[in-house]
Design a protein around this nucleic acid. Structure first.
Length: 113
DNA sequence: CGTGTGACACGTA
DNA sequence: TTACGTGCCACAC
């Protein structure tokens, strides 16, 4: 079959990783993209963001933040509230403290290889 | 096949 | 610390 991986499959992988991030923890678009990249998928941070925009509602989207710890732009207030409930480590600027909250992502597997 | 766009990342000022 | 420019990948026109 084609060497091109359908977005649906990529999206499934993204959601799987996000789902693996437990309460009180967080990961970044870049981290997710890197894992998927090592697994043989293409894409970058922005591609992960695109997937979240389309299918994010099915998972804990607020646990995926930017590399600087800032909340996703879609709904910062909602995300911040969620993290406060979960007790996620935050900095005084109201951003995620990735030093403490960064989650270890499971190893993704390639679509076909 | 060029151009614009996006829930990003990173170096530099 | 914030602001701006550049690189990045995939997709819609």
């Amino acid at each position: 079959m084609p060497h091109v991986v359908l977005v649906a499959d990529y999206a499934e992988a993204v959601l799987g990783l996000v789902d693996a991030v437990g309460p009180g923890r967080a990961t970044t678009y870049g981290d997710v993209a890197e894992v998927l990249r090592d697994a043989g998928w293409g894409g970058g941070p922005r591609t992960v963001g695109a997937v979240m925009a389309r299918h994010g509602g099915a998972v804990a989207w607020w646990r995926v933040v930017r590399a600087d710890g800032a909340m996703p732009l879609c709904d910062p207030a909602e995300a911040l509230a969620r993290h406060r409930c979960e007790g996620t480590a935050l900095t005084r600027g109201g951003r995620i403290d990735l030093r403490l909250a960064r989650a270890d992502l499971p190893v993704a597997r390639c679509p076909r290889r």
